[in-house]
């Protein structure tokens, strides 16, 4: 029998709700944005600030995790603004040290695209390998979003409190 490796929107929503609950407990700032008319437009997001270690310039980052319908997996997207509200370009992102992506592989991992939910340009981590990677952890995963973020955080310095792993 072929086992399904993709996840359904219902599984995603379930995991998202649980994830946000855990986040509230540890004040990690994730919020669920539920769209009742179109559940595929439901997403979770977190706004945070980072300081560039080289210039001490301040940036605002918005992380959004949404359900990618074509790939049947969670997708990770983000945007970065400077303190005046100007959007940072992909080339600037590439030079910023908060990402730990090999410069050579950078463009194959992160690209700027029109966001499927917001219809505005966002930086999106390409979902093509997500399914295979998630499949390996699927049976042991307690929360698919925690597992998914666990796969992403080696690439993007996203401080994920260990408490997310607790039951």
């Amino acid at each position: 029998m072929m086992s399904a490796t993709t996840i359904t929107i219902e599984e995603f929503l379930e995991a998202a709700k649980e994830f946000v609950k855990k986040s509230e407990k540890v004040c990690d700032g994730w919020a669920l944005k539920l769209d009742k008319t179109d559940i595929f437009k439901t997403y979770i997001k977190k706004d945070t600030f980072i300081e560039c270690p080289d210039t001490t310039a301040l940036y605002k980052i918005e992380y959004v995790i949404f359900y990618n319908l074509s790939y049947g997996v969670p997708s990770f997207s983000f945007n970065v603004w400077n303190s005046s509200g100007m959007l940072i370009t992909l080339d600037d992102i590439r030079r910023m040290s908060f990402l730990q992506i090999n410069q050579k592989d950078f463009y194959s991992v992160i690209t700027q695209q029109e966001h499927p939910i917001f219809q505005r340009p966002y930086f999106i981590v390409h979902p093509c390998h997500t399914e295979t990677l998630l499949a390996a952890f699927r049976s042991s995963s307690k929360n698919i979003i925690v597992t998914f973020l666990g796969l992403i955080t080696p690439l993007i310095k996203l401080k994920l409190p260990l408490e997310f792993g607790y039951q």
Partner: peptide
């Protein structure tokens, strides 16, 4: 000063959006 033309000026938006198609070829 915040120079917002890159995200607000429709002319620049059209230019960068059409550029994005070619950059995607490069990136992907």
């Amino acid at each position: 000063v915040a120079k917002m033309s890159a995200s607000l000026d429709p002319v620049i938006l059209a230019d960068t959006a059409s550029d994005l198609n070619i950059k995607l070829m490069k990136w992907r």
